[in-house]
Design a protein around this nucleic acid. Sequence first.
DNA 1: AAGGTTTACTTGTAAATACAAGTTATTATT
DNA 2: AATAATAACTTGTATTTACAAGTAAACCTT
Lengths: 238, 238
Amino acid sequence: MTTRDTLPQYRRLYELLRKQITDGVFVEGDLLPSENELSTLHGVARPTVRQALASLVNDGYIKKQKGKGSIVSALPRGIGILSVAGTSAALSSMNLKTLIVVKPLVMRWPDHFIFSLPPGIRESGCIMLERIRLVDSKPLFYDINHLPNVNLPRFTSRSFENKSLFDILRKDYHIQVVGGEQRLRAIRAGKKIARYLQIREDAPVLHLERRLDTNRVGFSFYSSLYCNTSVHALFGTF
Amino acid sequence: MTTRDTLPQYRRLYELLRKQITDGVFVEGDLLPSENELSTLHGVARPTVRQALASLVNDGYIKKQKGKGSIVSALPRGIGILSVAGTSAALSSMNLKTLIVVKPLVMRWPDHFIFSLPPGIRESGCIMLERIRLVDSKPLFYDINHLPNVNLPRFTSRSFENKSLFDILRKDYHIQVVGGEQRLRAIRAGKKIARYLQIREDAPVLHLERRLDTNRVGFSFYSSLYCNTSVHALFGTF
DNA sequence: AAGGTTTACTTGTAAATACAAGTTATTATT
DNA sequence: AATAATAACTTGTATTTACAAGTAAACCTT
């Protein structure tokens, strides 16, 4: 059970301000109420307010300037690559469609997996999911995801059409990405990648491999993404 | 009026602990001294210690666990160019050399710069710096940096041999990167890039363009980096 | 010896207070 | 009217104090 009643005050203030920003109560360039104002407004001490604001800075919602105030940043935070968010969030403004290449499938972990697996994970196998993301009807990403096959009820029967894997994990399974590791390479497209992305063989392709760590201890999942960057660059803020 | 040339206490403690971690005084899995110990050791209050530790957490050097302590994380094994801080740490363990292609040079900003410049920056020109980084005597990346030519005394006469631009800005000018924007592409190496990186023309190359925002208002600098990822992948944690 | 309990640590949250330092609008001076 | 000084804000740094909550080892009890 989640302790929403016992949520720390600074966390509650963070959630409130975050919602106000995402809901458009404050827009880019706006100044938040000053720390003292927020302090009296919500009946907490200034250090508590500062703790909330520090989290907002950390997550890229605001920037602070000494002597001036807390300035709201641009909302469409294209995150994606460096921060903790999925690729769907980064592309929300675009005409994005998802094509399922391989539906969620329980299988054995690959023998030579790029990342080392935590103990006890390999035994129960993994769930694999392959998708192609289309932007303006042209294939842009091809991504392969591997998740530990532990305590994810009805996962394989879920629909992943035009849905963010991150969102499904967060909303339906209360799993949040809290960090991870990534490796980036520019490679030549092989036969398979060239076919999926509809590009020439040997065309340069971005290959991004990621381990996504979550709030569930020992639960990390893995993403291997191939991206045709000839038209769209991968874009991100951090 | 003399500007205070001393760092804030929490910054100084951050630098000290950071150095001890990168120097191997503390290795992965070690516990740092407790907050109270650090407090009495360095003669600062615990909130000040916590401020320093929070920065170390933010930069990925440690992880904190309630009831246990501050646990030193593993240093990035690859080329940690994607992390906001701690780039030099990743490189220090490797046989890294830097070759200056173009020494820091004051010039006009390029007419068609990839990023839009803040107001008042274009007028005073920019400092450009081109380098090639060699790992095990083989060129790995070629990077072009543009910095605003404002209030950076003696910058052009500094040595950048085997030194991180981030470190010099942070330590000598109190400029810290607080965020930014990046664009990633996989491209084919042109003549110039192929020569600099000693690879075949048309070989796939990673192109990373970044705007680095700092704690100094209006002071952003820019980096364009070409990387041969055939041997080493670009590595990052988040 | 094995098990649970206590105790002494650790970090997390929160408050009140103080002053430094940057920004901006107002006021006073020239 | 233009300029300089001032006042009234803002965030930044730092201390002290207090208690809550998680961890682990020492301690008892069985």
